[in-house]
C-alpha cells in the first residue's frame, strides 16, 4: 500500500511539473521561443493567489483568490509578450532564451520584494485533509491536484480541437507564414498563447502551493519541468504532461530506494539520457533542414 501512496504523491508532483512543461511547450510550439521564466511565472501565480487568499494578507475567499491569480497571470503573460517578447520576433532563439531568463530574475525579485523570502503556504480547503481508500491514507491535496490536472487537460484538449482560437493557434504553430497568409493574426495569437501559458502556470502554482509551501526560489522547479518537456519531446502537449508525470513518478521512488544524494539527481540524469539517446524526446518527430 505504500506503493500506492508513492504513486499518488508522484503523480501529484508530476502534474505540477507537467503543467509547467505544458506552458513551455505551448509557447515553444507557437513562437519557437523557449520561456525560461515559466517556473517563475508559476511561482508568481502561487504568490498572487496567496496574497489574495491568505487570511494574513487580503483574505479573499479561496476560489476568488484562485480566479484572481489565474486572470492576473494571464494578463501578465499577455503583457510580457506584448511589451517585451514581441520585439524579438525573427531573432535567434538564444536571444529569447536569455531574455526570458532575465524576466525570471525580475519576477523572482518582484515576488521577493512583495512577499519576502520565507516559505509561505497557500491556505486552502483541502490542506491537511486525508482520503481513506481501503487501508490506504492519501492526502486529499494530492488527489485534488491530480483531479484538477485531468480536468484542465481535458479543457485544453477541447480548446485546441473545438474553438476557433485554438485551431488558429495550432495552425500558426505549424507554419507561421502559411497561417499569416490565411488571415490568422499570428502576432495576436502569440499574445493569447502567452496568456494561456500564464494561466496554466498560475494553476500549477496554486496546486503546488496548496500541497506545500513556496518562496521566490521555487521558480527553479522550472528546471525539473524542462526535464519533463524534454522527455516528452519539446513539441508535443500530451508529451509534456506525460514527461511531467514520468519525472514526478521517478522522484518518490528514487528517494525511497536510493540514498538522498543520488535520488535528487535522477530526474536530471534521465533527462540527459533522453537528450543524448533521443535528442528530440520520446514522442516528437524531427524535420531536418533541407538544402
Amino acid at each position: 500500500m505504500e506503493i500506492l501512496q508513492l504513486i499518488v504523491s508522484g503523480l501529484a508532483n508530476g502534474s505540477v511539473y507537467g503543467l509547467i512543461a505544458l506552458g513551455f511547450v505551448l509557447i515553444y510550439k507557437a513562437t519557437e521561443q523557449v520561456n525560461f521564466a515559466q517556473g517563475d511565472m508559476m511561482m508568481l501565480g502561487a504568490f498572487i493567489a496567496l496574497g489574495l487568499g491568505n487570511d494574513s494578507q487580503i483574505g479573499a475567499p479561496f476560489w476568488l483568490a484562485c480566479a484572481g491569480a489565474i486572470l492576473a497571470m494571464a494578463a501578465i503573460g499577455w503583457g510580457l509578450e506584448r511589451a517585451v517578447l514581441r520585439h524579438l520576433f525573427g531573432q535567434p532563439q538564444i536571444a529569447a532564451m536569455i531574455l526570458t531568463i532575465a524576466l525570471g530574475f525580475l519576477l523572482r525579485f518582484a515576488a521577493g520584494a512583495i512577499w519576502g523570502h520565507d516559505p509561505l503556504a497557500l491556505e486552502n480547503p483541502v490542506a491537511g485533509k486525508t482520503l481513506r481508500l481501503g487501508g490506504t491514507v492519501l492526502g486529499l491535496d494530492e488527489v485534488a491536484t491530480i483531479a484538477v490536472t485531468v480536468v484542465l487537460t481535458g479543457l485544453l484538449y477541447l480548446f485546441f480541437r473545438r474553438t476557433r482560437l485554438g485551431i488558429a493557434m495550432q495552425a500558426s504553430s505549424q507554419n507561421q507564414l502559411a497561417a499569416y497568409c490565411m488571415g490568422i493574426p499570428v502576432r495576436r495569437i502569440h499574445g493569447s498563447i502567452w496568456a494561456l501559458a500564464g494561466a496554466t502556470a498560475a494553476v500549477a502554482g496554486i496546486l503546488f502551493a496548496s500541497k506545500g509551501s513556496i518562496d521566490p526560489g521555487t521558480g527553479f522547479l522550472g528546471i525539473k519541468a524542462f526535464a519533463a518537456a524534454v522527455i516528452g519531446g519539446f513539441g508535443s502537449l500530451p508529451g509534456a504532461l506525460a514527461g511531467g508525470l514520468i519525472v514526478g513518478l521517478i522522484e518518490p521512488f528514487a528517494s525511497r530506494y536510493l540514498d538522498a544524494g543520488y535520488a535528487q539527481i535522477v530526474p536530471y540524469a534521465v533527462m540527459l539520457l533522453v537528450l543524448v539517446v533521443r535528442p528530440h524526446g520520446l514522442l516528437a518527430q524531427v524535420h531536418a533542414k533541407k538544402v
Partner: peptide, 8 residues
Amino acid sequence: YLRTERMR
C-alpha cells in the same frame, strides 16, 4: 523567420 530546423 521560420527556421526549417524546427520540429512540429
